[in-house]
Simulated assay, not measured.
Amino acid sequence: LTTVVLPETVFTTQELPASDRFEAWTEQLGRTHAPMHLSSDRAADYRGHQRVIGLGEVTVWPATFDHLVFRRTPRLVRQSDPEVFHLSLLRRGDGAASWGRQQVGYRVDDFHVNYSSRSYEISTGPDPVTIVGVEIPRAAVDLPAGRADGVVGRRISGREGMGALLAGLLVQLASDTSSYRASDAERLGRVVTDLVTAVFAHALEAEPHLAPQTHARALVLRIKSFIRQHLSDAELTPARIAAAHHISRSYLYRLFQEEGLTVASYIRDQRLAAARKDLTDPRLRTLPIHSIALRWGYLRPGDFTRAFRTVHGITPSELRDQQLSRTAVDGPHTDVDAVRMTPTAAHAHH
């Protein structure tokens, strides 16, 4: 089956008889990360839901599930070790992990980091938890041998600094993959890997050990995040962006050139994408178009109309009229062309 969006599978225990749910969930997580012994006080009627988004050699998997205790024993490590780092961004609930004498507790917006080559025990709280999990091959993390392993057991904040950048990307990916194409999967995987590497390096205070290209990619991600946060500012110029990141304009231009972009085109595309979303939102149908233009950094409505027509082939008012008439006839519609698998199909796939 060929799809134009990111490859994605869905697994939910609710489609199975209650007696089979926990065993199926155990097998699914074993395929997603590595074999583990799982236990739960909800095993008799277990509720778990997982989406698996494939980004080349990287996997991102948003999930919500009941109380769970994960145990990866030395014997399981010897029997099967895919040599992957696992990160979980905790979105709801709480949990704790132990590696022998080392124990760490986690709260919402913390990252938990694990490594399949080490034994561990993880337990979640009594209430269901929601996470965004990531699996990355150890070999893909661009840090000296043995250095990255030192991140295991640390609690990394997803609320500030490099951790917040990574958390923002993962939450965005988990919330909506429909705007990405299948051809974006490998590129997104590299972006996630670079950010994970930068987060690890920051946690280890090992930034000097990062490869130059990883420094550059992490910097580009920070700059793009800055741009998206300041799209409403009509004075968002390359000079201001460069100054905010303590680099020269020429270096800023070079960073974007290496990604096949210009700074101006990136700002324009982000502004127009945000404006298009507003124009097609029925809740904002009474908001004047010139207000939407101003909201996204266009002081003159004429400049906004020309830029929008150049990129989208129609004017903002024409797009709004089309969308409102379509909504009136068809009702709200979401076009998601993703691969969906039932538990049975997912099992057969593996």
Rank of each mutant, 00 (worst) to 15 (best):
L170P: 06
V171S: 13
V171I: 15
Q172G: 13
Q172T: 12
L173G: 08
L173S: 07
A174E: 06
A174Q: 04
A174I: 04
S175R: 13
S175Q: 14
D176S: 01
D176P: 00
D176V: 01
D176M: 00
T177N: 11
T177L: 12
T177R: 08
S178R: 08
S178H: 06
S179A: 14
S179Y: 11
Y180A: 10
R181K: 14
A182V: 08
A182N: 03
A182W: 02
S183E: 14
S183A: 14
S183P: 08
S183W: 13
S183G: 09
D184K: 04
D184M: 05
A185Y: 02
A185T: 02
A185S: 10
A185M: 02
E186M: 13
E186C: 09
E186I: 14
R187M: 14
L188S: 03
L188F: 07
L188Q: 04
L188T: 03
L188G: 03
R190M: 10
R190H: 13
V191T: 15
V191D: 11
V192L: 08
V192R: 05
V192M: 08
T193E: 12
T193G: 10
T193F: 03
T193H: 07
L195T: 05
L195S: 07
V196K: 02
V196G: 06
V196Q: 04
A198V: 08
A198W: 01
V199C: 09
F200M: 15
F200Y: 15
F200D: 15
A201V: 07
A201K: 09
H202A: 15
H202L: 09
H202P: 01
H202Q: 13
A203S: 14
A203Y: 04
L204T: 04
L204Y: 04
E205S: 14
E205V: 06
E205G: 10
A206L: 05
A206M: 04
E207R: 06
P208F: 00
P208T: 00
P208D: 00
P208R: 01
H209T: 14
H209E: 15
A211I: 01
P212Q: 03
P212D: 04
P212W: 05
Q213G: 05
Q213H: 12
T214D: 06
H215N: 02
H215Y: 04
H215P: 00
H215I: 01
A216M: 08
A216F: 05
R217D: 11
R217K: 07
A218I: 07
A218R: 09
L219H: 00
L219Q: 04
L219A: 04
L219C: 00
V220A: 05
V220I: 08
L221D: 15
R222S: 11
R222V: 09
R222A: 13
I223V: 15
F226S: 03
F226I: 05
I227Y: 01
R228I: 07
R228C: 07
Q229M: 13
Q229W: 10
H230G: 05
H230E: 10
H230Y: 08
S232V: 03
D233L: 03
D233R: 03
D233S: 06
A234H: 13
A234I: 11
E235A: 13
E235F: 09
E235Y: 09
E235L: 11
L236A: 02
L236F: 01
T237K: 09
T237W: 08
T237A: 06
P238G: 05
